[in-house]
Design a protein around this nucleic acid. Sequence first.
RNA 1: GCCGGAGUGGUGGAAUUUGGCAGACACACCAUCUUGAGGGGGUGGCGCUCGAAAGAGUGUGCGGGUUCGAAUCCCGCCUCCGGCACCA
Length: 822
Amino acid sequence: MNDRYDFIATEEKWQQRWAEAEEFVVHEDSSRAHYYVLEMLPYPSGALHIGHVRNYSLGDSIARFKRMQGMNVLHPIGWDAFGLPAENAAIQRGIPPERWTLDNIATMKKQCQRMGWSYDWTRETATCSPEYYRWTQWFFVQMYKKGLAYLRKGAVNWCDQCQTVLANEQVINGCCWRDGSEVSERELEQWHFRITEYADQLLEDMDQLGDWPDKVRRMQKNWIGRSDGCAVSFPLEDGETAIDIFTTRVDTIFGATFLVLAPEHPLVIAGLDDSAVGRRMSEFVDEIRRQGKDSRTAEDTEKKGIFTGRYATNPFNGRKIPIWTANFVLMEYGTGAIMAVPAHDQRDFEFARKYHLPIQVVIQPEEGSLPPEPEQAFTEYGVLADSDDFSGLSSRTAQEKMVEFAQSQGFGEKRVTFRLRDWSVSRQRYWGTPIPMIHCPKCGTVPVPEQDLPVVLPRIESTELGGSPLANLPDFVNVPCPECQGEARRETDTMDTFVDSSWYFYRYTSAQFDSAPIQKEAVRCWFPVDLYIGGVEHAILHLIYMRFFTKVMRDLGLVQFDEPVGRLFTQGMVLKDGSAMSKSRGNVVSPDEVVQEYGADALRLFVLFAAPPERDLDWSDRGLEGCFRFLNRLWRMLEKVKDAKASTAAEGRELSEQDRALLRKFHQTVRKVTHDLERMHQNTAIAAIMELLNSVYEYLDGEDQGKAGLLREVLEGIALLLSPFAPHFCEEMWEILGHSDSITFTPWPTADLELAREEGVLIVIQVNGKVRSRFSASPGISRDDMQTLALEDEKTKSLIEGKTIRKVIVVPDKLVNIVVGS
RNA sequence: GCCGGAGUGGUGGAAUUUGGCAGACACACCAUCUUGAGGGGGUGGCGCUCGAAAGAGUGUGCGGGUUCGAAUCCCGCCUCCGGCACCA
């Protein structure tokens, strides 16, 4: 007898059988309930890491569970194959990025298969394949035609390390999200996606994200950053031009004692002439530019400004106020100009103090009043004062009335401003989807005609840093203009890889389709995604881009819904010794080595068991061994019963109390595991199966006549319940127990609630809320009986002797609480 | 500053959905059996304090509150973590 199972042979055997039987290949079938479980696609960096193993094992447990529940399950995978790291690695090794990437995909695919994840490999997709990026380009062209993709020259985030531009979402605390190096500002002409066009929808449709973590919703809300306010136009003394400002506190406008423009504001730039003021301003603007965006927007940065020499008129009261420019006003936000109300805004207050500008109180608190020269700004809502006809109104009412007034007078309007910026998608690198545009000196920017797509990324032996590498390939660059046939230049930037991954999960439904990006019927069959699993680090990158893309696709008539994902699950990271695994720290655990030593099933079990899926997991070699031991313990049990004759528990003999207890435990476990899988509590589901096995061992203890039948039934149940977590082991077990079919489509067991019900209940006796004693009773015992039994309990009696019973609380089948006074 | 989350044995965690025996399951540790040894396996113990034991007291970050009863609900505070932040 083998007291250890041969995981290497077992796992290989079943992986082979699954592949031969095309077990996980699915087809659209509208007659069946369907389920789409998706995990964030991996970047082919070289090898799977434990974080992937956790992510994909989580998804696989659900895919297998849903299959056994009879659903048609789509469980696909692909590769986020374009991107900088591949290009950098290729440069380092002197090989083409494509070879590097394809080799990595091959390696990682093998690793995936060795883990036994139930993917439909016929739908495998790599974003770097021309069949895929053809449609990424197609989307770009459609977006260009709709005005959603446009070229704009302006300040962009530049990462020196990556030698390319980054989107706002890819700048974290002023540093590159990928390598952490500091990001600087550059003026470049770049392609952008007009995601701001959808800002409101992205915000409003969050209601439709029923089962998304609040955390992600809040992060997106913060990121989109809607503020409701009012735009007001302040005329200049020339009477022709005016400065538009945006404010959320129009109720304070009578306290505006100056205006402040961003140093990049056109009016400031226009004033940089040869006059004395102009020269001083030039100096100032240069200084601010040198300061850089990052240090300039730090909160503790000293406020600096300079008077522009010009004045504007407050349209509400006709007062003439000076116009300043200062570092703390940003061109990107609002209109790049603010009205400064020092009495009611802390920043304006500090600035006014520093430059001796007037401070005018116009809002008084509900109770009491502010001193004429306050020590700090009063920024709360209150009651208006010294504001003409608006005096005496509450801030809230005043805001409404004042917007109406401004609107009627034609110098202002209600306005909504967002923090969200348009998505900069140009990248000055080689390994990405070529932007399908052509620049013609006569016709301007012209999209590549759809029938000419894809614009194939030329193969090159190696790339170099600096500039867009494609620009060095004359054969690629020089093309006739599609409109006038004259000489023209191809766009040589490539797209941000986040564009590629914004629609990959649609392609899975139509992976082989070659006349459109997606087949509408296939999408209709599978969407929305039922469950999407990935790390929370994408909360405001990928997860906002994919929502944006879906809305664009809807407006292109490709899909009929607003949101692509019904339920999002964000899993925690895998740590070792308290910190993220990384090569530089040298604390990386290799899945390959673990699989070699303990098997894929033990590894899968461990990553699911060791912590709740949404929390961070600390890697533990010992914990892994524990899971391995559990499988062996189950294996030994299997060896004990595998020869027993098949019979169901009901047959043969009357059920003993022991039999009923085991059967009860079994059905309770079925109920718990089912429930726990639905709510993504894989850790407690596995714990419940471990408990059940412990019960089986207890059951076997002592008298063992006539137990084989029930044992067998329970073991079969364990094989089914455990199979979403440890599929190879359970298939083997299933086969040993005499089944010739795969466990994959064997129906999930159902809990018999009758059998699961406890025969006796343990009633707790509390005295003044403290547990003092307990007794057992049959379920459904009457309240009166419970009370009587509790008061008759010897121990309870001695505790309440000589005391007055004030009250007795009876909770059916649970407890009796006797409240006594002295 | 604003918004949010989390604090439970030596460790990971369970019980929070529904207020009702706190510590399931596992790791580590201790004892013991099996084995030539190692490994593996079996059995028992394991929050803290007192106690040989039975048992008693105490205990879910801290302080209050609601309740017959609070890890769970409410208020205040502390610590850690995350998002946004000179956003007008």
